[in-house]
Amino acid sequence: MNWQDVKKNAKEKLKPYCRVCPICNGIACAGEVPGMGGVGTGSSFKANIEALHKIKLNLSTIHNVREPDTAIEIFGQSLSLPVMAAPITGTTYNMGGAITEEVYCEEVIAGSIMAGTIGWTGDGADPLMYGSGINAIKKNNGKGIPIIKPRAQDEIIKRIKQAEDAGARAVGVDIDGAGLITMALKGQPVSPKSPKEIEELVKATSLPFILKGIMTLREAEIAYNVGASAIVVSNHGGRILDHTPGVAEVLPEIAEKFKGKIKIIADGGVRSGVDVLKLLALGADAVLIGRPVVVAVFGGGREALKLYFDNIKNELKQAMLLTGVASVKDVPRAILRF
């Protein structure tokens, strides 16, 4: 199995919901929601890609780095690389249904484990979506992280308890899912949360609590003040609000104030190991990857996902070697050129 074969298979299975473009940049699929595109003009999706592409790396080959270390520990879990599979649902209305929700979740969790990392699972209008993720995590000894939509408080807490029962490594809410129309249409409304409501959720579990969808310094501060263990700097893949900045644009100001105080995970437009290194240099502790994970799983299941993560890891090590970075736990911003 090679990556080109995986992409070819995925293109057939995802047609016409995803074109599996040579460069996944949000241009061809702009406005295709449901689907795999960005909302409206697709500006927010494209901004994630463009923000990363604007940043360059300083080539450095006079140093003592020989074997770059890509391993991290997060939420008590040792990972071979600082990259995890993002929570994605909707295999039927976003991806065409060639793979069921249950199979997708199982392959993401299993493939992530095979690659030495961990998969996140999501939530959606159909209860099967969250349940499929919980079942896959439970089946794999809790090696997964479920993320819940910003539903009513009692509904979120009920799902937090399910995550605990599954032995999940952490749990969280993607607060940026507050505007999802499909949830409301199916009688499961979602909405923004007050700081007090978020604090209630943090205190409802002994698991590390993640708040996903933070794009401002103010909201990062709220997450920190209410006791969240981690934030995910993310604009929901550009699928919620048109014309937001890219993740790489807002990450530095958040990291400048909160690096070392709360785990900072970046999610948006990562397509290579070089992109991973850029986000780490901007202050992230780890990153999430979304759409390419879909391509991998649809193109070849868990083995293809392992192949993809192995490729990312190799690209990351090469980039570290050529910028003089010894460990992903300490990536200096000086390797970047703006």
Rank of each mutant, 00 (worst) to 15 (best):
K261Q: 13
P146A: 09
D154L: 08
I62P: 02
V226C: 02
L307I: 12
A228N: 02
E67V: 13
A319F: 09
K261H: 05
D123H: 08
K317P: 03
L282I: 09
L128K: 15
L241H: 07
E101C: 10
S60W: 07
G35M: 03
G42N: 13
R159F: 02
K11H: 09
L316P: 00
I240E: 10
K263R: 14
A98L: 01
A248Q: 07
A152E: 15
K186V: 00
K193L: 15
P146R: 07
V202S: 07
D310S: 11
D285S: 06
I264C: 06
E256M: 15
A230I: 11
I265R: 07
R333Q: 12
V232W: 06
Q77R: 13
A168G: 02
Q4G: 00
K278Q: 06
D275F: 08
G172M: 05
I88K: 00
H236Y: 14
G35T: 06
V33C: 03
P68C: 13
I156Y: 06
L59V: 12
N25Y: 00
S229T: 10
A110K: 14
L277H: 01
G300I: 08
A10L: 14
L201C: 02
A228R: 00
N58H: 10
I137S: 09
K15T: 08
N135S: 14
S80R: 14
M183T: 00
V270I: 15
P150C: 11
F298T: 02
I198Q: 05
K11Y: 12
N235G: 10
L336I: 11
E199W: 01
G237C: 06
P87R: 06
K259Q: 14
N135H: 11
F309A: 03
E155K: 07
N94Y: 14
L322G: 01
C105A: 15
M114V: 03
A266M: 12
L277Q: 04
N141A: 15
G31V: 11
G300Q: 05
T182D: 14
